[in-house]
């Protein structure tokens, strides 16, 4: 029984690794051939099309250029999630202040999770005794700077923005976490959770499942993420296609550039709920219509504190804390937007 099973296992591993290698190779190939993975359609093109064709042309533009990128992003997200040492993180989260922040902010980018896992994860971090600071840092870092989001920001917008998004999110996340952990109400929550965390559960000594099962799990998770995210992504594309076709560029130029643009973008981009990845698409649409890069950064930084997120989190910590981190995140999105605008002259 063992030899046969072994051979089947090896075959499956080989197949899956080949698949992954092909995906990576396609991505690299497209880079070498300087084949842009970003959409190229412009508002002017869209305006000349019949009404029903606008979303189709838009979607085709995105897909024909970006399918490799999307495929790679979901495969990467699945692989990273599976092979991240979760038990290690769970065990070490609670062992000291700096370590907690480093783990939370440092590992958060690797957790592209379905949004439903985000809140239990946040609560879980509180219960490991890591403190409210690292927990908030995680909450703000993960949606903004995870594998999926960053890959797509880089491809569809620019790698400069993607890099800055990471740095800005990191600073915001740690700052918000730190500030809240110093407030009396933040501390109270920490104490409350630490007192309650007498867990009666023991963790099974983690025996790592065989590689082929982990690879399958990874690819399945990537597929699951795709199934969850892509339908809304396409819906977002439809909406944005009409926006790009019909929103007058003068309006965008007036309201979404300059200091006012940064402020407006931060206010809308924050509480406004956009499904995962749609904020990138919408951001690009607005850019095509004339929004400044500074406002774009502000817009993107609003991702972690949209209204549904805040409501879900309020079930774990009180609204006071939620509004706190939302306010701090908003403040930093304005700050970074303005700073980036001034430094890069793109205000």
């Amino acid at each position: 029984m063992c030899a046969m099973q072994e051979r089947i296992r090896r075959l499956r591993i080989a197949l899956m690794l080949t698949f992954v290698a092909l995906v990576i190779a396609s991505l690299i190939y497209s880079r070498i051939m300087a084949y842009s993975l970003a959409p190229t359609i412009q508002p002017a093109h869209l305006q000349g099309l019949p009404l029903w064709m606008i979303p189709l042309a838009y979607i085709w533009d995105y897909l024909s250029h970006g399918w490799i990128c999307l495929l790679f992003a979901f495969v990467a997200a699945g692989l990273v999630y599976e092979f991240m040492p979760k038990s290690f993180i769970a065990k070490h989260m609670g062992s000291g202040k700096v370590q907690g922040y480093a783990l939370a902010a440092g590992f958060a980018p690797f957790f592209t999770v379905c949004s439903c896992t985000m809140v239990p994860l946040f609560a879980g971090i509180l219960y490991t005794g890591a403190g409210i600071g690292p927990a908030i840092s995680f909450l703000l870092m993960a949606p903004a700077a995870n594998v999926l989001t960053i890959l797509l920001t880089g491809e569809i917008l620019s790698w400069e923005i993607a890099g800055i998004r990471i740095i800005a999110s990191l600073v915001t996340a740690v700052a918000a976490g730190f500030i809240i952990s110093k407030t009396p109400w933040g501390k109270r929550i920490e104490v409350e959770h630490r007192l309650n965390s007498g867990t009666t559960t023991t963790n099974l000594g983690i025996v790592k499942p065989p590689l082929d099962e982990r690879l399958t799990s990874a690819l399945k998770f990537g597929g699951f993420l795709g199934k969850q995210i892509l339908p809304f992504f396409f819906l977002g594309l439809v909406v944005v296609s009409y926006l790009e076709a019909f929103l007058p560029e003068e309006i965008v130029a007036t309201y979404l550039t300059g200091v006012g643009g940064v402020l407006l973008a931060s206010v809308i981009g924050g509480p406004l709920y956009t499904p995962t990845l749609v904020e990138i698409v919408l951001g690009r649409g607005l850019m095509n219509l004339g929004m400044s890069s500074a406002a774009l950064l502000s817009w993107l930084m609003g991702q972690p504190y949209d209204i549904p997120n805040m409501i879900a989190t309020s079930r774990v910590v009180k609204w006071k804390v939620v509004l706190n981190y939302a306010l701090i995140a908003w403040f930093f999105s304005v700050l970074f937007g303005l700073a980036y605008g001034l430094v890069s002259g793109s205000l």
Binding site: Y81, E82, K86, I89, A90, V113, C116, T117, V119, P120, L121, F122, A123, G124, I125, L126, Y127, T128, N196, S197, T199, T200, T201, T202, N203, L204, S217, K220, F221, A312, R315, V316
Partner: peptide
């Protein structure tokens, strides 16, 4: 309930606990 989930020492859902032992978390 997320708080209840966390109280069991679970970070990643879905998770399965058999007689107070966490046998799996973070995947189906």
């Amino acid at each position: 309930d997320p708080k209840e989930i966390a109280r069991h020492g679970v970070l990643f859902t879905p998770a399965v606990i058999i007689n107070n032992e966490i046998v799996s978390q973070g995947k189906i």
